[in-house]
């Protein structure tokens, strides 16, 4: 069995194919995803999560520090329980860190923003965040606005 020029072409083909796969993995996709490295989870309760999805980013000061792990409804209080999986690199969040659901851009995706507090103690795995701010629901906002407007101007005689 000897090497032929055919082997060269096939070898080139296979190498090119794998090079494309590596390109897609490293350059196009985020292979070094946060979810791959070790994380610790904290819980946050929200009155309303708006359009938050599982795997949505968790950011602090705009930097990606984790992802939303799961979203459940608390059957007693009827609030949403959101589990945040935060990268173990970022262990220094104070215990009174607050979480709010924000939107990137007008049509952008919703994400969880963390606002670090000032306490000495740091967040541990399984903790629950005390201060949360729900997503802003546009319909409610408009409804509130109209309601206020109507309260301001007394109903004219009709």
């Amino acid at each position: 069995m000897s090497r032929t020029t055919l082997d060269l072409w096939v070898g080139l083909f296979v190498a090119l194919g794998f090079a494309s796969l590596v390109f897609l993995a490293v350059k196009v996709g985020s292979y070094s995803d946060v979810s791959r490295s070790s994380t610790y989870s904290v819980k946050a309760r929200f009155d309303n999560i708006g359009g938050l999805k599982i795997r949505a980013p968790v950011k602090s000061a705009g930097v990606l520090v984790g992802r939303v792990g799961s979203i459940k409804l608390d059957r007693q209080s009827f609030r949403a329980i959101v589990r945040l999986d935060i990268n173990s690199k970022y262990r220094e969040f104070p215990a009174d860190t607050g979480a709010s659901i924000l939107t990137s851009g007008i049509l952008g995706e919703q994400y969880v923003g963390l606002d670090p507090g000032g306490e000495e103690a740091v967040l541990k795995d399984g903790d629950t965040l005390q201060f949360t701010q729900s997503a802003i629901v546009l319909e409610k906002l408009i409804g509130q606005f109209l309601f206020n407007k109507a309260a301001e101007t007394p109903a004219s005689a009709h």
Binding site: F13, L16, G17, F18, S20, L21, L24, V28
Partner: peptide, 8 residues
Amino acid sequence: LLAAMFSA
């Protein structure tokens, strides 16, 4: 392999 090259 061809599909990966196509995408790239």
